[in-house]
């Protein structure tokens, strides 16, 4: 198994606050890996560094065998998308004053292969039927769960090699969460590599192959997801056991 994403000891922060203290993690081709941890642990920052939005202060990030980021610069965010490094950001960040279809097509912004785009659009509609029904509706009028589906669909239209998802279950009705996690599992079965950031550790660990636990900017535990799920430290901190 070859590593698709390698994050090597990255340091990052905002202003005078350092958020990540030498975080390392690896995602292999074809895996679902989950990054779990509490509020403010640095999960989103890790993804934003990987997407090239937040600059690194130390460490390196490699994607598909190439160094894409290091302290002092790296590949620009908009270029990374074209290489297949795609993120579904926290809070969905859909475009509220564009229709559902326009939102989806924004995912294909950098693509020219019309046939491929049309095929991916059909794939998204097959995955989330509701998006097809609502294709002419403005994005801002969708419910939270539907917006999450839209954000995932939009990311699929970017033709990802690695899909990074930031808390897709946050603030969404449980029935829709189940839908979304089923879709994630299906995408992975079709060969997509996924890095899933979640506070909902239980659901994430059941879905993933391996997991990392992030606490205040450091990876404190990493193991197979099945083992983390029964690990007393994880159960106590994130799964509500006492």
């Amino acid at each position: 198994m070859s590593a698709l994403l390698e994050i090597k000891g990255i340091v990052a922060g905002y202003g005078s606050v350092e958020v990540l203290h030498e975080v390392s993690l690896t995602v292999n081709e074809g895996e679902i890996v989950t990054l779990i941890g509490g509020n403010g642990a640095g999960k989103s920052t890790t993804l934003m560094c990987t997407s090239g939005i937040v600059p690194l202060r130390g460490g390196e990030i490699h994607f598909a065998g190439e160094r894409i980021s290091a302290a002092g610069g790296g590949v620009r965010a908009d270029k990374l998308v074209g290489r297949g490094l795609v993120q579904v950001p926290e809070g969905r960040r859909i475009f509220p004053r564009m229709t559902v279809l326009e939102n989806l097509m924004m995912g294909a912004y950098g693509r020219d292969d019309k046939a491929g785009i049309a095929a991916d659009l059909e794939k998204v509609y097959a995955l989330f039927d509701i998006l097809k029904q609502r294709s002419a509706q403005l994005g801002g009028t969708l419910s939270g769960g539907e917006q999450q589906m839209l954000a995932i669909g939009r990311a699929i239209l970017s033709k990802p090699r690695l899909l990074m998802m930031d808390e897709p279950s946050m603030g969404i009705a449980p029935i829709l969460v189940a839908n979304i996690f089923r879709a994630v599992a299906q995408l992975n079965r079709e060969g997509l590599t996924i890095l899933l950031v979640e506070q909902n550790a239980n659901a994430a660990l059941r879905l993933a192959r391996r997991g990392y636990v992030l606490e205040t900017g450091r990876v404190t535990l990493t193991d197979d997801a099945g083992k983390l799920l029964v690990d007393p430290r994880v159960r106590e901190a994130y799964l509500g056991d006492s």
Binding site: D78, V81, F95, M105
Partner: peptide
């Protein structure tokens, strides 16, 4: 033009779509 509308509505998301903002 679509890139403009996207950037106006959510600049971070626009970057994540591969738009050179």
């Amino acid at each position: 033009g679509r890139g403009m509308r996207a950037t106006a509505q959510n600049p971070v998301a626009a970057k994540l779509m591969g738009i050179d903002t």
